[in-house]
Amino acid sequence: MRPDPSERIDERAVLVWRIAGASSALMPAAAAGAMAGLAFMDLVPGWSFWLAAAVTVVVALLSVAIVPRVRWIRWRYEVSEDEVYLRHGLVIRKRTLIPMTRVQHVDTKAGPLLRAFGLSTVTVATAGGEHEIPALSDEVADRLRDRIAVLARVTADVV
């Protein structure tokens, strides 16, 4: 059995994902607020507020407290001279192998949230689609990007 990839992504990813998760709990929270108002005016039955509140709590619990940590624990990557090997997945666990010779280009990118934490995502593109390694510290991401670019260039091959 092939050993798991050796590298973990940056632990600050957990915090970033928590913030992102909290924003996804905003929708049900807004709904709960609206329900509270409507229930106060007797326009909807009281239980609809409790339902919306319960949904909010569950979503928040999952997307803020549990999912980010588990996702971070599951994320592993390894870049050797010959291949990129990824392991990730919350419920459905995935292992992906990308031969270095197939890499077409490699990018780093960071949205405002990742930038605020000094993190970047590395995107590895092949002729068969793109693969991402999320939330690496900027230095690690830059180094990894340059390293993959060099390794991929050496083995450059036509599609």
Partner: peptide, 24 residues
């Protein structure tokens, strides 16, 4: 171009996994 093995918890219990191969 890349090969992915995926496994959800029920598959793990049964010792099964799905495989997908990507080509250009």
């Amino acid at each position: 171009q890349s090969v992915t093995v995926s496994q959800h918890p029920l598959q793990k219990i049964a010792g099964l996994a799905s495989v997908s191969v990507r080509v250009a």
